[in-house]
């Protein structure tokens, strides 16, 4: 088997809040093969963005190892590390409003990474910027305009061009469509999938919208309170979730089809996600889980393989032990 492009082992990221520790990412392991799209889903506050940011060195990890093409990434990123890895790994952000500098033109924003991290000359940079404008569905009229002169969808196109102009191998997309209108979401998703194909990108696609994640990703990882509870092929997980939390998420996802909704089985949904400040011992989902058993309150279940079909499903739940 190939070496994975990204190999995350026991990654942990804690934030200090006063005397408390927020365990935003807690012992997460995940490997991502070159060319695949892995979707990352979970409720707000489950640690998805933190995982993405820590992966790229934007947040400093507390513990664990990350390998990129087999070589270990630094714990503390120095300027030269950013310089070195910016060409390989990039991020696209949720909010196309706040993630673009309002005082820079679209052209300057898109070209910034080239100026910082490449040794192309001015005219080559200008050429590349124009190429990328067109690739993301904008045109040269847009070069000199400022972010506020664009719609949300157009701003996200600028964000995509900015991230991809260095032609990285790996891109973390943190909710790239959540802030967009329904009619524009599909445009951006199509663009990402198309660019992924033509450039051979590998994506970690973070999103709230389960149907969209299923649509774009090959595999899906489900995160709850800082840890991964299920990993597997997106279709398989969607139609046959194993972990009770995954079941709850998918069962709650409304389908745009009245007949399907009328025949839906009501999911038993109790309580809310507990605070990161006091993560329960044992299974973190136990206080909301309709299947919780005595052992669940004491022993933290770990991810293990529950099916060996083409899916190699990993689930962290005592029901499958």
């Amino acid at each position: 088997m190939n070496k994975p492009l990204i190999d995350i082992r026991n990654l942990t990221k804690h934030f200090d809040r006063g005397r408390h520790k927020i365990r935003a990412v807690d012992d997460v392991s995940l490997s991502i093969e070159a060319g695949e799209i892995v979707g990352l889903v979970g409720e707000s506050g489950s640690g998805k963005s933190t995982l993405g940011r820590t992966l790229l060195g934007l947040d400093r990890k507390t513990a664990g190892k990350i390998f990129y093409k087999g070589s270990k990434l630094p714990t503390v990123y120095r300027a030269k590390d950013f310089h070195r890895y910016a060409r390989s790994m990039q991020m696209i952000f949720q909010d196309p409003y706040s993630s673009l500098n309002p005082r820079m033109t679209a052209g300057e924003i898109i070209g910034e990474a080239l100026r910082l991290h490449s040794d192309l000359n001015k005219s080559d940079i200008a050429k590349r910027i124009e190429e990328w404008l067109v690739k993301v569905g904008l045109n040269t009229d847009h070069l000199g305009r400022y972010p506020h002169e664009f719609s949300g969808g157009q701003r996200q196109r600028i964000g995509i061009a900015r991230a991809l102009i260095l032609e990285p191998d790996f891109v973390v997309c943190d909710e790239p469509i959540s802030a967009l209108d329904v009619s524009v979401q599909a445009q951006i998703v199509d663009l990402l999938v198309e660019l992924k194909r033509s450039l051979g990108l590998t994506l970690l696609f973070i999103a709230h919208d389960l149907s969209m994640v299923r649509y774009v990703s090959d595999r899906m990882a489900v995160m709850y309170l800082g840890s991964l509870v299920e990993i597997g092929r997106s279709d398989r997980i969607f139609f046959d979730p194993k972990h009770p939390y995954t079941e709850l998420l998918i069962g709650s996802n409304p389908e745009p089809d009245p007949n399907q909704e009328r025949s839906r089985q009501k999911v038993q949904s109790i309580g809310e996600i507990p605070s990161q400040l006091d993560i329960p011992t044992g299974c973190r989902f136990a206080n909301r889980c309709p299947h919780a058993m005595a052992i669940c309150h004491d022993v933290n279940p770990v991810l293990r393989i529950v099916s060996h079909e083409d899916d190699k499903r990993l689930v962290a739940c005592h029901l499958y032990e």
Partner: peptide, 19 residues
């Protein structure tokens, strides 16, 4: 433009162009 999840159905999203 919105994905649906009917089992087995191969789906293709068709974006609405423009704004």
């Amino acid at each position: 433009a919105m994905p649906t999840n009917r089992r087995g159905a191969v789906q293709k999203l068709t974006p609405i162009q423009g704004t």
